[in-house]
Computed example of a mutant assay.
Amino acid sequence: MEMKKRISLELRNKSPAEVVELLVDNCRSGDGEVEGLTDEYTELEILSMVNVGLSSLSKLPSLPKLRKLDVSDNTIAGGLDTLAEKCPNLTYLNLSGNKIKDLSSIEVLQNVKNLKSLDLYSCEITLLDDYRDGVFELLPQLTFLDGYDQEDNEVPDSEADSDEDDEAGPPGDEDEDEDEEDEEEGSEGDEGEVGLSYLMKEGIQDEEDDGDYVEEDEEDEEEEEDGDEDGAGDRGEKRKRDAEDEGDDDDDE
Results as ranks from 00 to 15, higher is better:
Glu219Met: 03
Ala168His: 06
Gly186Cys: 01
Leu142Trp: 02
Ala160Phe: 10
Gly211Met: 11
Asp210Asn: 12
Glu208Arg: 09
Pro156Met: 13
Gly172Gln: 04
Glu124Lys: 14
Arg235Pro: 00
Gly169Ala: 02
Lys238Asp: 09
Asp210Trp: 11
Glu174Asn: 10
Glu159Trp: 05
Leu139Thr: 09
Leu127Phe: 14
Glu151Arg: 11
Phe136Asn: 06
Glu191Phe: 01
Ala168Val: 03
Glu185Phe: 04
Glu221Lys: 07
Gly169Pro: 02
Asp166Lys: 12
Tyr213Met: 10
Asp177Gly: 00
Ser197Glu: 15
Gln150Trp: 02
Glu224Ile: 09
Tyr148Val: 14
Leu142Glu: 01
Asp220Gln: 06
Phe144Ala: 04
Glu237Gly: 00
Thr143Ile: 13
Ile204Glu: 15
Val214Gln: 12
Leu138Trp: 08
Cys123Trp: 00
Glu180Cys: 04
Asp175Phe: 06
Glu237Arg: 01
Pro170Lys: 01
Thr126Ala: 05
Asp133Cys: 04
Glu137Leu: 12
Glu223Asn: 10
Asp129Asn: 02
Asp165Met: 13
Asp220Thr: 04
Val135Met: 05
Asp130Lys: 12
Asp163Ser: 13
Gly192Asp: 15
Phe144Pro: 07
Asp209Trp: 08
Leu142Lys: 01
Asp177Trp: 02
Gln150Gly: 09
Asp130Asn: 14
Tyr198Cys: 10
Glu178Trp: 09
Gly186Leu: 00
Glu202Gln: 13
Ala160Ile: 08
Asn153Ala: 07
Ser187Cys: 08
Glu216Phe: 06
Ile125Tyr: 09
